[in-house]
Design a protein around this nucleic acid. Sequence first.
RNA 1: CGGGGCGUAGUUCAGUUGGCUAGAACGCUGCGUUUGGGACGCAGAGGUCGCACGUUCAAGUCGUGUCGCCCCGACCA
Length: 490
Amino acid sequence: MSNKGITKREQDYSQWYLDIIERAELAENSSVRGCMVIKPYGYAIWELIQKELDKRIKESGHKNAYFPIFIPKSFFSKEASHVKGFAKECAIVTHYRLKESEDGKGVVVDESSKLKEELIVRPTSETIMYDTFSRWISSWRDLPLKINQWANIVRWERRTRPFLRTAEFLWQEGHTVYPTDEESKKEVAEMLQMYSDFAREYLAMETISGKKSESEKFAGAVDTYGIEAMMQDGKALQFGTSHDLGQNFAKAFGIMFTDKDGEKKYPYQNSWGVSTRMMGAMIMTHSDDNGLVLPPTISPVKVVIIPIFNEDEKEKVLSYCKDIKESLEDIDGVEIDDREYVSAGFKFNEWEKKGVPVRIEVGPKDIQNSQAVLVRRDTGEKENVGIEKIEDTVETMLKSIQDSLLSKSKELLVSKTHRVGSYEELKAVLSSEKGFVLAHWCGNSECEEKIKSETKATTRCLTKEGIGSSGKCIICGKESKEEWVFSVSY
RNA sequence: CGGGGCGUAGUUCAGUUGGCUAGAACGCUGCGUUUGGGACGCAGAGGUCGCACGUUCAAGUCGUGUCGCCCCGACCA
């Protein structure tokens, strides 16, 4: 494998990802590509995200369940636009057995094991879940049905990209069935809000969210809503969706309930999910030239204590470090890096690359002065702190880092958002600093397509603020009541 | 699937008009000295030059085929 053609920007990202993931080295001659290994440190971040998100999902009344990874092909084709949307990116299981090859070298597919009906490796679980739901639901008393699943899914994308678009990825998908359209639509909005709150409060990311255009919506949905973040290079990154499925899937899968009035009715459904891509968005939002910068909330190691010593002072320094660690017992994720075979400078650098929010340096000089040196990752500021004040200072510092990352993210988003009144202006912004561009669009897909093919920018979403704002479509000049967000996206 | 770039040590790469025992840096192992911003010295391990066939006295280098990878496009979380 060669990275000769790699771009500058891409190199930056690989640098950030070093401790998190790596490309999976799959067998030679394999046509499987674009898979990733999530390293322990990266998975620890994912687990922290999972933990908090799972809590919030359960608070909304959902229960976790698990459905099969294999979906019979026939299920998949029950909803016409759904199959159309995913048909081009599926992995398909056709056989179930191998045998020794004739020449005795290795194994080949046993043709006699061909499946009567092929199985699709789930690209999303609507079909397999809703087939089951049709048996779980028969009365209004069974509703609402609120299910969430943490799973891996496979999408055989034509072109993959480490972290942002891999063939296999992890996600959470929530699926709800309601008796009425109003209740379902209300939740579609609530879950979108939950994602945006989570991003702000936990990942220190300011985002925008809103309705997707007809051409960008989920295959099989009535409406799709998305949440988007603005990256440092001016490109948008969508990392979560919430779909209003209406009765489309209920009708396709025969989900019916008998209502209080005794009539059989189709219920209304929604689904929503965020993936490991959210981690990618978070990393690309905060990180800098020295490596990752993690918000304290999701940093597996929040404080790292680095002892600096020679052989004579070793014991004294280490025991001083242990005292500091004990004084920080209320904080999860405090580590002492007592490795003797690497220098202090190496450790500083290494923990910076891992994005650890606070570093405490402890050497003989500090012991002499009953203090320690506290360094924050986001600004690099160093501060000498008296031993008795360390606990308070660390707590304040962690909070301050979290807040400051959020305001930085907010500033980035605001500074990279531009309102334009003409197509010329939009093109000018997109060819210079990119970012989110607010522009009026009549809703006609031809105008949308023209912008996409000429500038690479797509409609990202229609925010609440954009609804009802009057103006003229920047392409055709027709009256428009909607100001859309356009952007070049990942 | 179109356009471009590549395949040599664990990694990143060098290798001239074909020529001697295929190199460097980083990483790895051992010993010693080090440790307040990516330490240093010495010794060592590590290769079927993607694969196949061909041209040649001679192939990492040239030709044909094949497999794979990366980047850009169309599609997508």
